[in-house]
């Protein structure tokens, strides 16, 4: 499992716009870089990121090799109701990881 850092509030007022900041440990090997023996290292990147709020998708991104190693993605969402946010990263070599965070909305 790759290390993930998620920064978002645990609670928020109903209707507030909250900022979500994500970091995941991943080499994002571009597929354009020569390795030690001179041959190109095969591509190994995260290609998709998704965030759902109580099951409904609120944000999604397609990533390319131009995203830095250990990808950082930050975006916002409206705190609509208490529940669970889920974050999924998918990529080459069947990479797939999901993390969840609960939020209390008052």
């Amino acid at each position: 499992m790759a290390r993930v850092l998620l920064n978002l509030p645990r609670s928020a007022a109903k209707g507030a716009v909250i900022e979500i900041r994500t970091l995941i440990m991943h080499p994002m090997e571009s597929g354009f870089r020569p390795g030690m023996n001179g041959s190109i290292l095969p591509r190994d990147i995260i290609t998709r990121f998704r965030c759902s709020y109580n099951g409904e998708e609120v944000f999604r991104a397609e990533l390319s090799p131009a995203i830095a190693a250990n990808p950082f993605i930050s975006f916002t969402t409206v705190a609509t109701e208490s529940g669970t946010l889920s974050f999924t990263w998918e990529g080459d070599n069947d990479f797939r990881q999901t993390e969840t965070r609960d939020i209390a909305v008052t």
Binding site: A66, A68, T77
Partner: peptide, 12 residues
């Protein structure tokens, strides 16, 4: 539902 149209990242 994003509330604001913002995106931050680190690129190469």
């Amino acid at each position: 539902r994003a509330g604001r149209a913002e995106l931050a990242t680190h690129m190469r």
